[in-house]
Every structure is written in structure tokens, then in C-alpha cells.
Design a protein around this nucleic acid. Sequence first.
DNA 1: ACCTCGACAATTTGGAAACT
DNA 2: AGTTTCCAAATTGTCGAGGT
Length: 373
Amino acid sequence: MDAFYTPRAVAERVAAAMPEDFSGRVLDPAVGAGALLSAVQERFGTKVSLYGIDVDATVVRGLRRAQPGWVISQADLLQNKAKTASRAWRAAREEIAAVVLNPPFSYRGNGGDRIGYKEFSGRVAPAMRFLVEVLSDLEPSVGVYAILPDGAVDAERHQPLWEAIRRRYTVSRLERFKTTSFHGARVSTSLVRLMPGDSYDQPAVIRRDALEPSLDGCRCVEVIRGRVPVHSVRATVPTDPLPFLHTTNLRMRTPDMVASAALADEGPLIMISRVGRWSDPTLLDVGRAVLSDCLVALRPRSRTQLDSLQGSLREAKANFLSAYRGTGAQYLTLAAIQAQLEELGWHTHVVKASGSVEACCCGDSAARECERA
DNA sequence: ACCTCGACAATTTGGAAACT
DNA sequence: AGTTTCCAAATTGTCGAGGT
């Protein structure tokens, strides 16, 4: 299990987020060195009683010695039996005012544990599993204050779970911490508050499929996620070489690698970086090239559209900048790219990399425009 | 001869307490 | 702080056995 304990400065922000007149029981189910509870104690003094749980027996022993006034239990929060048997958890079930939480983030890839919470069921990152453990068994009257990796907050596959949580809690992201806030790691995290009571009066996110398609002339654009990882290009010498384009080439302009023509996409393409940071869209105006899996290419239908698409992208720069998400490296999902483009009045059509150019996806009247263009 | 199902392979896609 | 690499689950494609 990872042990990235909460730095003092972060813990203080968590305590500061709690209401001024707060009092009652506070539980930290992943207490570690006790930084969060210490900060709460410093702010609220004798108005609070403090409970902690940790899986690490050494940590628990140390904390019990250092804080004789706290109730500290040793248990694995993800083991139902051990959890429910622990003194701290039982006390919290009886009555709890607030839960403070800095769960383990440790996670790579798209996996995670399959969990259920109310109407949600699916795979989630460990941090979310910790949060759900709390929510499914405890009813903190004031709320939950959790430090979560941005990936857990923003990941597409966690949205149905957040939806289920929002039905019962008002969820707010109170603060984004600096990526350097945790010692020995660079990670994007946020302070998220869950207050009992649903948050459905908050402005809902506009769903893409709820938007009216704009049919004023053809504004079709194909969205292509590159499919070739850099390492696979380095490992092979193609017999039919075409330029290989990677995020590094967006600024350098001149491709410095080649890959097999079988993997190439037909131009003209406007390329944006899927992973990394937004840089001005780069136009590849002639011929074909192979796209790295860190790039997304936009392919409009005609030269006039090419210009107007570039204009749209320039205009929407700020929106694209804020659409990048992630705990570590920032990235755009295909859905996020589509949402941005649709907002600008483009019809998007995700097509496979190195496939053939597909038929126009507009409505009938606009399709005729396309053919003329 | 044709359809269905399931195992396995290949590709696609989101994502990373990362890397430089 | 900005960026690079490439992983692993999810999804899609395919192939053959067995049923109709």
C-alpha cells in the first residue's frame, strides 16, 4: 500500500474548509500519520472527538502513543469484517459529524475494483472505492472532506458513480492543490466536499446529445485518434516509409521519424495533442502521414472548412485548455474533443485511424452542400 | 449451408502518487 | 512546470465447433 501521507499545508486547507461552528465526531478512515485529524484538532480543539483507522499496524501503534486522546483502530477499510469490527468504525456508525479522507491513489491504467454503490455498479479507482466505503456505511451529518486525485474526480468512467453520489450529496470541488503538494510525487489533486442533500439544483453539464445539430451548411469533421505508439515506431524499419508525427513534432514541424504507410492517414489534417498540453493546432496540408497515439487529428471536408475549422479552434483555445483532465499527465478524451467541436457548431464523426475517408455524416440537406464543396 | 456462441487475438482507448 | 512514454482494460474482430 502506498504511503503518501498528507502534508501539513494540505491538511490545514481541509480543516479550514470545515464550517466555523463545527463540532462532533470526526473520522479519518485512512489516518496514516494523523495529519488531517491534527489539523482538525488544532482548529476546533475540544469541540471535536477524533477517530482514525489505518491498515498499517506500526502506524497505528505510533499514533496511539502520540495521541492518547484519539480512538485509533487497525483495520483494512476494504475488508468489511475488520472494518465493522473496529472501534473507530463502530463509533462512527453510531454518530458521525464529518469524515476527512486522503485515500491511497495508487493506480495505473483503466482497471480498478468492481464495486456497487446504490444504482451504480462498475470498476473504479482505489480512491473512489475508499470514498464509497465511507458513503455506503456512514452518514456524516456535516459531510465528507476528501483529497482526491483529479483523475478520480474527472474520469469519464467515474461519472455515473458521481451521478449517484450527487443524488445524495452536494458535491463541490473546493480547491485544486498544486501538483507539488505531495512530497515525492507530482500529482494533480483536489479538495472535494460532499454535503448531505442532493445537488440537482446546480447547473447540469450540457449533454452533447441534447444539443440541436446545426445544419447551416456542412460542418462535418472527422476526429481521428492516432494509433501508433512511439516505441513501436522505433522498433521497426518500414519498407514503405511515411512521416511519423508525434506531439514533439507539433512545434518542431519537421518529422524526424518514419513509419509504415499501412498506418497512415490521408490529409489534410489538423493535429492537436491528446496527451500533454494544448499547443496551437498544426496543419498537415499535403499527403499522408502516420499519427502517434498521443495526437488527435481533425479532418474537415473541404478547403473552406479547413480555414473555418482552424478559426474555430483558435477561438476556442481557452475552452480546449480547460478540457484537459488527469491526475498525472493531462489528456483530452475523444468525448471531450467532440463536445468542444459540437459547441462550435461542427458535426463530429470519430473514425478509425488509417481507415479510409468516410461518407459525410450531415443531414440530407447539408449533405448536398458537402458534395458541392 | 448457414447461423450462433464462445474462446482467443488484435485493436482501441483512457489513463498514469510519471518523467525530465 | 511542461511533456513523453507506453500500459492495461475494454472493445472489437476472427475463427472454428457445434447446432439447426
